[in-house]
C-alpha cells in the first residue's frame, strides 16, 4: 500500500507542476491584474523606469479648485526631466504592502536607480494597522507569495491570508488603544490613547450632530487616535520597513523614505504640545533608524501649513497644490545628491 501511495503522490506532484505551467500561461496574468494591478504595472514598466515612486492616496488626491493638478511624483519629476519616475499608488497602502511590491521587481533585469517609498505617520498607528481595509490589501498580494502560482491562487480561494473580520480588527484596535502605554519624558496624566481620547470625547458625545463644538471635539479625538503612539521596533510597520531597507541595501538600490507632512498646526491647537511632541519624537525615530546605508529619510513632517491640507475636518495627508509643491521640491532636493547631473531647477 505504501508503495502505491508514494507512486500516486509522485504522479500528483508531476500533474500539479504541469497544471502550474498551464495556469501561468493562461490565467495568471489576468488574475494578477484583477487583484493587484500595481504589481503588473511594476513588471511592465520596470524596463523603462529610473525611479519607482510608491505611494498611498497622497499621490492621487488634488483639490478641485487647484490650478496645478500634478501629483507629488510628477512635481518631483519636473526637476529631473531626463529621468523616468514611475508612480505606483493605491489608497491606504503602507510599508507591509510596499514590501511586497518591491519584491516583485526583478533585480536581474534593468534595475531601478532609486526607490521612493512614501509613508505618513498615521500608517504606523493602531487604527491603520487594524484598518478594515487591511483584508483587501492583504488579499491583493496573495498571488505574489513565494510559492508556485497555482498554489497561491488556491490559497486565495481558501482565503488563506490575514482575512480577519471587520469586528475582529476593530476589537484589536480598541485593545491597542486601551492597553498600549504612552511614554513621555515628562509627567502627563493620560497613559493610553483611550484615556486621552475619552478626556476630550466625553464633552462632545451628548451634543447634537452637526454642532460645531462637537465637530471640533471629534476632530481633536481623531488627532489623538491618529498620532498618539511611540514608535519602536515592535511596531509591525517598522518591521516591514526594515525589510524594505534591507532588500534595497542587498540589491544596491538607493531608498528614499518620503515622510509626508502632517497637520502639526492643528495637532497643536486642538490637542496640545504633548501630541506634537510625540509626532516629532516619532519622526526623529524614523530619521535616526533609517538614515544609514543607502537610505535617505526625506523629512516633510512640519513643512506644510494647516490650511494647505485638503481635508480640514479629518486627518489625512491630502494637500493642495502648494503643499504638493513643497513636498515635491523637498524630495527633488534630496535626490540631488544621487542625480546631480540630471537635476534642473523647475521653480
Amino acid at each position: 500500500m505504501t508503495k502505491k501511495i508514494i507512486i500516486k503522490i509522485l504522479i500528483l506532484v508531476i500533474v500539479l507542476t504541469g497544471l502550474n505551467f498551464i495556469y501561468n500561461l493562461t490565467q495568471y496574468k489576468h488574475d494578477l491584474k484583477d487583484r493587484c494591478k500595481e504589481i503588473v504595472d511594476i513588471k511592465e514598466k520596470q524596463d523603462s523606469t529610473d525611479i519607482f515612486y510608491f505611494a498611498e492616496s497622497s499621490n492621487l488626491t488634488v483639490r478641485d479648485e487647484d490650478s496645478i493638478k500634478n501629483s507629488i511624483s510628477e512635481i518631483t519629476g519636473f526637476f529631473y526631466p531626463s529621468l523616468k519616475i514611475t508612480s505606483i499608488d493605491k489608497p491606504a497602502t503602507h510599508a507591509g504592502i510596499y514590501k511586497v511590491w518591491l519584491k516583485s521587481i526583478n533585480v536581474n533585469l534593468n534595475k531601478p536607480k532609486a526607490i521612493i517609498v512614501t509613508l505618513n505617520m498615521r500608517s504606523f498607528d493602531a487604527a491603520w494597522i487594524h484598518s478594515k481595509l487591511e483584508t483587501q490589501l492583504q488579499e491583493s498580494v496573495v498571488l505574489v507569495q513565494p510559492y508556485p502560482n497555482i498554489f497561491n491562487r488556491f490559497l486565495l480561494s481558501l482565503q488563506a491570508f490575514d482575512n480577519k473580520t471587520e469586528e475582529q480588527r476593530e476589537q484589536e484596535m480598541l485593545d491597542d488603544w486601551k492597553n498600549v502605554q504612552l511614554v513621555f519624558p515628562f509627567d502627563f496624566k493620560y497613559k493610553t490613547v483611550r484615556d486621552w481620547d475619552v478626556s476630550y470625547g466625553q464633552y462632545g458625545w451628548d451634543l447634537p450632530e452637526g454642532d460645531p463644538k462637537k465637530n471640533k471635539i471629534l476632530l481633536t479625538c481623531h488627532y489623538i487616535k491618529g498620532y498618539a503612539f511611540n514608535l519602536n521596533e515592535n511596531n509591525p510597520r517598522i518591521k516591514d520597513f526594515d525589510e524594505i531597507a534591507k532588500w534595497c541595501h542587498q540589491n544596491k538600490i538607493n531608498l528614499y523614505l518620503n515622510l509626508l507632512a502632517e497637520n502639526i498646526e492643528y495637532a497643536d491647537s486642538l490637542v496640545g504640545k504633548e501630541l506634537v511632541f510625540l509626532m516629532k519624537q516619532n519622526r526623529d525615530y524614523l530619521v535616526k533608524r533609517y538614515s544609514k546605508n543607502n537610505c535617505v529619510v526625506v523629512d516633510n513632517l512640519d513643512n506644510v501649513n494647516g490650511l494647505e491640507f485638503i481635508d480640514q475636518t479629518w486627518t489625512t495627508e491630502h494637500y493642495g497644490y502648494r503643499g504638493r509643491m513643497i513636498i515635491g521640491r523637498n524630495l527633488a532636493d534630496s535626490l540631488k545628491k544621487q542625480f546631480s547631473k540630471q537635476y534642473k531647477k523647475a521653480y
Binding site: 504522479i11 500533474v15 498554489f151 491562487r153 488556491f154 480561494s157 482565503q159
Partner: peptide, 20 residues
C-alpha cells in the same frame, strides 16, 4: 479517472470563487 482528477484539480485550484 486521472483525466477527471486533472480537470477537477485545475478548476478547483485556478477557477474557484475568491470571496469568503
Amino acid at each position: 479517472r486521472w483525466a477527471f482528477y486533472i480537470v477537477l484539480l485545475f478548476c478547483l485550484m485556478t477557477m474557484s470563487g475568491t470571496q469568503k
